[in-house]
Design a binder for these strands. Sequence first.
DNA 1: GGGAAACTTGCACAGCTGTGCAAACCTGTC
DNA 2: GACAGGTTTGCACAGCTGTGCAAGTTTCCC
Lengths: 345, 345
Amino acid sequence: MTDVATGKQRQRSFVSAQQVAALAGVSRSAVSRTFTDGASVSESTRARVMEAAEALGYHVNHLARGLIHDQSNIVSLVVTDINTPYQARMIDALTSRLQRAEKVAMVINTSGQAESVEKALRQTLQYRADATIVLSGQPAGSLIQTCLNNGQHVIMVNRDDPVPGPDTIIVTNRTAAREAFAQLQAAGCRKIAVVASEVGTASVVTREQAFVAAATEAGVAVQVMRYGPTAYASGAEIARRLLAGADRPDGAFCVTDLLACGFMDTARNSFGLSIPEDLCVIGFDDIEQAGWSSFNLTTFRQPIEQIAERIVGLLQGPPPPSTRREPIRFQAELVWRNSVRGKPV
Amino acid sequence: MTDVATGKQRQRSFVSAQQVAALAGVSRSAVSRTFTDGASVSESTRARVMEAAEALGYHVNHLARGLIHDQSNIVSLVVTDINTPYQARMIDALTSRLQRAEKVAMVINTSGQAESVEKALRQTLQYRADATIVLSGQPAGSLIQTCLNNGQHVIMVNRDDPVPGPDTIIVTNRTAAREAFAQLQAAGCRKIAVVASEVGTASVVTREQAFVAAATEAGVAVQVMRYGPTAYASGAEIARRLLAGADRPDGAFCVTDLLACGFMDTARNSFGLSIPEDLCVIGFDDIEQAGWSSFNLTTFRQPIEQIAERIVGLLQGPPPPSTRREPIRFQAELVWRNSVRGKPV
DNA sequence: GGGAAACTTGCACAGCTGTGCAAACCTGTC
DNA sequence: GACAGGTTTGCACAGCTGTGCAAGTTTCCC
């Protein structure tokens, strides 16, 4: 393969504007202007440049472009448990919208050991990402601060660190959890349990606490059981422990749909219970599986599409000042299916 | 905030090596060498540099670094249907391993309209990604060719375009599908159906065809039904159509676990069938839900972790020559659960 | 035809880094 | 103290782009 412009033997590698310019017989500036919106190029040279670019397979080097503007158009997504239905949907929604906004998503997986999280987050800075979207509970506040200091736009989802600077998006976990209690009580549940995990993710903890608070206010005692990670297997294990006892609960609030799935499956398959007749269950998140006919889980829907829309919207403007801002709230909507007796109140 | 080095008012923005050098009282080269493996710096200046870097919050600019070396350390993942359990697991496995290998993953979501796919793939090139990993059936071969021409390392997973150049990874769909037939036959199924989608993804098509071929060889007629996308709802719809007839099938090979879940749920909940007594089901992929006790689905496990390991391994070396290479094969292992009568043969 | 106005184009610099090269420095030996 | 050999350091250039500025070109109007 020979380089058309220089005549030298060309390694398979990226084409530069220089080479396009040489082939088109114009200056490099003309090439640059052809690919810059709003720059002044005559129609004829633009055409020549485009033809040459096409022929050589030229693509503007965004690394160099990012060097000049203070904008890389890279947005980094800091995520744990990507293989979880909720997170996967979030990533799907975000990446497709980011693309539509001419940005590109860099995924930082914080599932590994904490030390690697720090290294990964550093990558965000090293690639001069314009923004960091934190979907994970992991990275410490101090690391977030570093991002802010470097002028990054930081958006945190479902975390409630009281740091000034980042935009914060939260779903009304508290309200929803209280509503969950009201529904279970209306369904006539006498003995209510809260199914939670041992992982102290902000939203999960909030849901548990708010539910317990609502129960306490109503003068009802509830049994809280936490176990393992926030996953199907944990819900199953909790069911095994909770339902084996003499006075088993007849209502359960699972802080996550995944926990609910494990809980329901075990309740039915290992204990022969019918849902909702013997046991009412409410979950949270409205993951796809909640709608499957074997679960038919009553749950709270997180408006993921709207959240993603809003996040990408926030990214359009210039990064905001580093003052404390009110969190942006989204309502979690009750999705009534068939895992609770009766009708919603 | 005032810049320690220059004394000027500093916009919140990224720190450059120049500023670190000024603060540390050394040349910029010294800073560069401090952050370059194997470069020659005395212990004392390294310490001074590190201190200054720490104070200012310096991070090497990978955009500029990538400009010099022909290496950005960016790997782009081209993916459809991220919110699907199989893809989500793949992304999880890949991103965490890429991070460990000091690379970073850029996710290109090709779920949108085809036109956006092309634009998205162009991003891969514009950011000078070292490699492109294609997990999606979407992008046309010609686009892939462009990546190759630019010297990118392209790795395709579960596609069988006969293009020379890319590394190809395939799971032994054919073998597994034949084994599926053998198992259903051994379980005594008389009337066997294939549950598939209308989306012509390579692996899905291969599984269907190989199964049918095996049946034909054995002189058994099977009924193939394709419907909609490769999702739960499609499996459910196919069950509704297939099981309503007079002579309903008593065995089904679902080309995907998701289809299988929908199929099973509908078979049980809408038609009152018992699995495996009335109906044997085999799936493919071994997604998490296949192991849930309400499904207990016999299926074929794709060795995702090993595949990811291998992919990242391929990325370590220099990009290979653009000759046709033999695809790298992985065995899909039968996972026997309880959706087929009897024992595996 | 002439001149003003608008447009186009090339030059040269900036943005941030890595690195070859030569100069400067240090260490140790005679 | 001189010198050889090794280590460290700074200079200057390269890599690819965007853009202000001035020069060149076209357009248009009188």
